[in-house]
C-alpha cells in the first residue's frame, strides 16, 4: 500500500507566510556561510543533510486529504479537505482530462476542514468520471450537496458533470472498496466522526482523525486497540498535547501524540503517523513534537520498536 498525504493540517488551512519563509532563508543563509555552496547540487545536499526538516521545508498547510494506493486501477482517498485540490490536479495531470477515472472517497465526518476541498475537486466537473463517496456519518450526503450551494458557492451540486454516488456505511461492517476491505469505527468527536481500518493482502492502514481518546476509559482504550490491532500504519489525530487534551481542551474531540503511542503499543501496531496538526504550530514546533514523540516511544518501549512519522503535505509512505 502506498499512502500519499495531500493535506495534514487540522481545523483550517495554515499556509506558510512570507515572514516565516524569510526566517527560514535567513537561518539557512547564516548556517551556510563560508561553505561555498556554489552549485545547486551542493546547496541541495546542504538542505537535506545539514538543515533540519523544518528549516529546509514545511509540513504544509492543507487540511486532511490522504490518498491510499491499494494497487488497483481506481483511486481511494480519505477525506476531501483543502489538500484534495492538489490531489485532483495530480490525478488529472497523470491521466489527462479525457481519460475518465473512478474516485472512491472515505469521509471521516463533515466538519469543514474535511470536506472544503470538494467544491474544487476538478474531476467532479468532468463528464465520465465516477465519484463514489462513502461514510458512516449520518449526514454526509446532505453536507456535500449543501456546501456547493448559493450564496456560499456559485456552482450548484446539481451542475456537476461527473457521476457522483453516496454510499452510507455501517460501523463495524467490512466493505470492499477500491480493492481494499474497509471497516468503520465510531469515534468520540463533536457531531460524530468515524475512523477506518483499510486492509489489503495482509497490510493494514488505520485512518483515525478527529477522535478523542480518554486515558481512563479502559473500555474505549481496549476497543480502540482491537480496532488498531497489528496495523502497519496508524494515521492519528495528535492535534493537542496530552495535558491540553485532558484539561483545557477536554471534550474538544482531538487527541495527542502520547495517546497515539500508547494506543499503538497496546495494539502492537508497527508505525504511527502524527496527523491533523494544530494550525497554531509552526514547522519548528511540529518537528519538535515529532522528536519528543520519538523519545517518548523510546522510553516507554516494552516490545518491538514503534516507528513514528509526522505527516507533511507531500509525504509518501509505503507499507
Amino acid at each position: 500500500m502506498k499512502i500519499t498525504f495531500w493535506g495534514t493540517r487540522g481545523s483550517l488551512p495554515a499556509p506558510l507566510n512570507g515572514a516565516a519563509v524569510r526566517r527560514k532563508l535567513v537561518n539557512a543563509l547564516v548556517k551556510a556561510a563560508g561553505l561555498g555552496l556554489d552549485t545547486p547540487e551542493k546547496a541541495e545536499a546542504f538542505c537535506s543533510e545539514t538543515l533540519a526538516f523544518a528549516e529546509a521545508s514545511t509540513f504544509g498547510g492543507n487540511t486532511s486529504c490522504v490518498q491510499v494506493d491499494t494497487g488497483g486501477q481506481d483511486y481511494l482517498v480519505c477525506d476531501l479537505g483543502s489538500g484534495a485540490r492538489e490531489f485532483s490536479m495530480a490525478a488529472l495531470a497523470r491521466h489527462g482530462p479525457g481519460s475518465p477515472q473512478t474516485y472512491h472517497v472515505l469521509l471521516s465526518h463533515v466538519h469543514w476542514d474535511h470536506i472544503m476541498g470538494f467544491p474544487f475537486f476538478i474531476p467532479a466537473f468532468i463528464p465520465g468520471n465516477r465519484i463514489r463517496i462513502y461514510s458512516c456519518h449520518p449526514r454526509f450526503e446532505w453536507a456535500i450537496r449543501n456546501q456547493s450551494h448559493e450564496p456560499c458557492f456559485p456552482v450548484e451540486f446539481s451542475a456537476l458533470s461527473a457521476a457522483i454516488e453516496f454510499v452510507p456505511l455501517e460501523p463495524g461492517t467490512p466493505y470492499e472498496i477500491a480493492g481494499a476491505t474497509v471497516t468503520g469505527m465510531a469515534q468520540l468527536h463533536g457531531g460524530d466522526s468515524f475512523g477506518y481500518r483499510i486492509e489489503r493482502n495482509g497490510t493494514t492502514l488505520i485512518y483515525t482523525t478527529d477522535a478523542e481518546y480518554k486515558p481512563d476509559d479502559i473500555a474505549q482504550m481496549e476497543r480502540t486497540a482491537m480496532f488498531f490491532r497489528d496495523a502497519d500504519l496508524v494515521i492519528f489525530d495528535s492535534m493537542y498535547s496530552l495535558a491540553e487534551s485532558i484539561t483545557l481542551k477536554e471534550d474538544w474531540g482531538h487527541s495527542s501524540n502520547v495517546m497515539g503511542v500508547e494506543l499503538c503499543q497496546l495494539a502492537r501496531a508497527k508505525a504511527l503517523c502524527l496527523f491533523h496538526h494544530e494550525p497554531v504550530n509552526d514547522d519548528a514546533r511540529i518537528e519538535a513534537i515529532l522528536n519528543e514523540t520519538l523519545r517518548f516511544e523510546e522510553i516507554t518501549r516494552t516490545g518491538d520498536r514503534l516507528r513514528i512519522h509526522a505527516a507533511h503535505d507531500g509525504l509518501v509512505l509505503e507499507i
Binding site: S241, A243, V258, E292, R295, I299, T300
Partner: peptide
Amino acid sequence: LEIFTISRF
C-alpha cells in the same frame, strides 16, 4: 520528568 515534559504536564 521527561514523560511530564513531553505530555506538557
